[in-house]
Amino acid sequence: MNRLLLPFAGFAVLVAFLAFGLTLKPSEVPSPFIDKPAPDFTLPQLDNPSETFSPSAMKGEVWLLNVWASWCYACLEEHPVIMDLATTHALPVVGLNYKDIRQEAIAWLERHGDSYRLSVSDTNGRVGIDYGVYGVPETFVLDKNGVIRYKHIGPVTPSAVRDTLLPLIRELQK
């Protein structure tokens, strides 16, 4: 009996580690930008390229930077959720149109609705790299001082909005 106890204890520890491993999401790489000032950029606006936008224009507001593209299927999936945040919850959302063709991005917004305060064109993806974007869609929550407080990787789901994003945003808006 005693002889079996030790191997069994080892097995139990192994199973516990594996079970814990199953709860991890290796595809969600923790962002090094959390609680750091958002990298600055100046990009042309999607619907009016002669005008530019910089994150500093959003000082004093809690806002979302939503990375999207017309070629990205998951963006379409999260689009109603993002629109709901912008309209029902009156949250300013800026779109970072990532590695897209301008005409196609505009057509995509016409087709599926545009609730962004504005979108900016990151045609070569350089700003995406500066923000550590590695898979579209990604959504950053920025506070009133332009500090990144949270990053959502992948499509934003209604449950993520309810359980994580909205409580955090309401807290930041105080």
């Binding site: 790489v29 923790p30 962002s31 090094p32 790299i129 500066d130 923000y131 550590g132 590695y134």
Partner: peptide
Amino acid sequence: MVERYGDF
């Protein structure tokens, strides 16, 4: 690279 994507 680390500044943007972390030690990962």
